[in-house]
């Protein structure tokens, strides 16, 4: 039954899916519940003093539990823009978001250095924002951004719909 090598080959398209019930734990939970009240929380390492938001249970480099909650933002300066042309399927739904989209690293008010907070940028602002850059003494300020809150907030990262430009429009 050898036969010629030409043959039809079969592929099967299937979305594997398992329902999940994710736990926030006390640290992530406190952060998410604060978003419901339009507040962004960070957590401070007792050893090196750095802030993390979203908060983690411990500071990885210092290997100690974070101990102090701090309110930051909600506005801040854009430090980084990831201009994304390709979207991976969302593992929570199997769906793919619209492209291009902007993922932004924001230095929220009260934070410094690398303590950036990541979220989405208002698609309308994609080509209107500038990144803040610090090279030695040369400082270029990034665009001011502010969160746009969802009307119905549930204690989720999506309680912030996205960040939008918080500056007067540049002269034409």
């Amino acid at each position: 039954m050898g036969g010629p090598m030409r043959q039809r080959l079969i592929t099967l398209r299937q979305t594997i899916a398992v329902g999940q019930r994710f736990a926030t734990g006390p640290v992530m939970g406190r952060f998410l519940m604060a978003l419901r009240e339009k507040t962004i929380l960070a957590i401070r390492c007792p050893s090196c003093g750095r802030l993390q938001s979203p908060p983690r249970e411990i500071c990885a480099p210092c290997r100690v539990r974070n101990t102090e909650w701090v309110e930051v933002g909600p506005g801040g300066e854009m430090r980084m823009l990831e201009y994304v042309y390709y979207a991976s399927p969302d593992p929570l739904s199997g769906e793919t978001r619209e492209t291009p989209y902007g993922a932004v690293g924001i230095l929220l008010d009260g934070c410094r250095d690398e303590e950036v907070f990541w979220h989405l940028l208002n698609p309308a602002d994609l080509d209107r924002v500038r990144m803040g850059i610090v090279i030695g003494d040369r400082v270029t300020r990034g665009s001011r951004l502010r969160p746009v809150w969802a009307d119905a907030r549930t204690g989720s990262i999506s309680d912030i719909r996205y960040f939008e430009l918080d500056e007067p429009p540049a002269p034409a």
Partner: peptide, 12 residues
Amino acid sequence: DKWSQRFQGMAL
């Protein structure tokens, strides 16, 4: 059902 803990919290 450790509903109040993330897996990271249990490991810690």
